[in-house]
Amino acid sequence: MALNNTYEARLVQQETAVGAGVQILLLALLGSAIGMGPAGWLTGLAFATATWAVLSRALHRTRPRSFGPANRVTLGRAILVGGVTALVADSFESSPPVTLLVGLTAVALILDGVDGKVARRTGTSTALGARFDMEVDAFLILVLSVYVSTRLGPWVLLIGAMRYVFVAAAKLAPWLNAPLPPSMARKTVAAMQGICLLLAGADLLPYAGDLAVVLLALGSLVWSFGRDVAWLWRNERRTAAEAAAGAEETDTTVAALERELLELAVR
């Protein structure tokens, strides 16, 4: 059995290595198509290396028997996000290929609705897969917010940074790590961010139209995070109150037992 586990682990690691190789191939294709500069190449390679290293470490820690079809879809999305990241970095040195950037982003956003369905249908849903999917989504939103901010202003970065600020805050306030109840509104708002930023980045609308779309995205995101933080705060207070009530009940019970024992001793 140990040999079989080692063999499966090796196959899983091979899939991540193939993903890194495909990422480099995509960068090479983009480089030959648009003459990508050093910033795009270095950023794309850094993304590929970081993704491979973090994913390999997570797989080594969780030791799944196989990488799984849903994770393959998410890995494909990550490769596309790496291409988008390289194009955005390259846009600071030269005019961005908007059509190519929009095309890669659109495919990545479409596939975002695929990996979850694949996981459910194949019965391969895992905590690692859900976290992998979430991190790819969050990084794509961050990269798109960087791109759109060059036209609309630095305030757009709030969209991409909000999730990372929440994660950092949870380090200081552990009650923010409590699981949230499922919410269709939360999922809808999360999906809106990529669509709105893609629309603004496609340069199809006038400035006022792009501004309205991105403000809508930011407003809905602030509302969603605010609602979740308020729920987590109420949950923390309720949990603390229940714990205090339980401790008080225990103290009362102990005191009653002590009185009974004292009365028996007196008799």
Rank of each mutant, 00 (worst) to 15 (best):
S94K: 08
R151K: 11
L142A: 10
R163C: 11
F132G: 01
T124I: 05
T188K: 03
D115R: 06
K171L: 15
V114M: 06
L128K: 10
P182M: 01
D115S: 07
Y147W: 14
L128W: 14
G116S: 10
A200P: 11
V148S: 04
V102E: 12
A89M: 01
P181Q: 06
S149P: 00
V136F: 10
T124R: 14
A106V: 06
V156M: 13
T122N: 07
P96S: 14
L180W: 12
W155M: 12
F139S: 02
L197E: 05
T150Q: 14
A202P: 06
M184R: 09
A170E: 09
A168M: 10
T124V: 03
L198Y: 11
L101T: 14
P181M: 00
P179I: 02
L172S: 13
V102C: 09
V189G: 01
L158C: 05
G103T: 13
V189L: 06
A127K: 15
P181T: 04
K117D: 14
V107F: 03
T105F: 09
K117W: 15
V98I: 15
L144T: 09
I110G: 15
L144E: 01
D115A: 02
G116F: 06
G116V: 08
S94V: 13
Y147Q: 02
L111K: 01
F139V: 15
V143F: 12
D112I: 00
A138D: 13
R120Y: 11
I141A: 05
I195K: 01
A161H: 09
D133G: 05
G103N: 03
S149C: 08
G103A: 15
R151L: 10
F139E: 04
Y164P: 12
G113Q: 09
F92Q: 02
E93Y: 00
L172G: 11
D137F: 00
L111Q: 07
C196G: 11
S91E: 07
A191K: 00
E93H: 01
G201E: 14
G153F: 02
L197R: 06
P96W: 03
S91L: 11
V114K: 04
R131P: 11
G129W: 05
P97E: 10
R120F: 07
T99G: 14
G113C: 07
D137V: 01
V165D: 10
Y164W: 11
S95V: 15
P96N: 02
L197M: 05
L176S: 11
A185M: 09
A178F: 02
A173G: 08
D112R: 03
P174H: 13
L197Y: 05
G123R: 05
P97R: 08
R121F: 05
M192L: 12
L128Y: 13
G113D: 08
T150V: 01
G194N: 02
K171T: 11
L157G: 10
G113P: 14
L140D: 03
P179S: 01
P154M: 07
P179M: 04
G194M: 03
G116M: 01
K117G: 04
V118E: 02
T150C: 03
V114Q: 07
R120A: 02
L176D: 13
A127N: 13
V146P: 00
A119W: 12
V189Q: 01
I141C: 04
G103L: 13
R151G: 07
S125Q: 14
M162E: 06
L152W: 00
N177Q: 14
L172C: 06
V98C: 13
T124G: 02
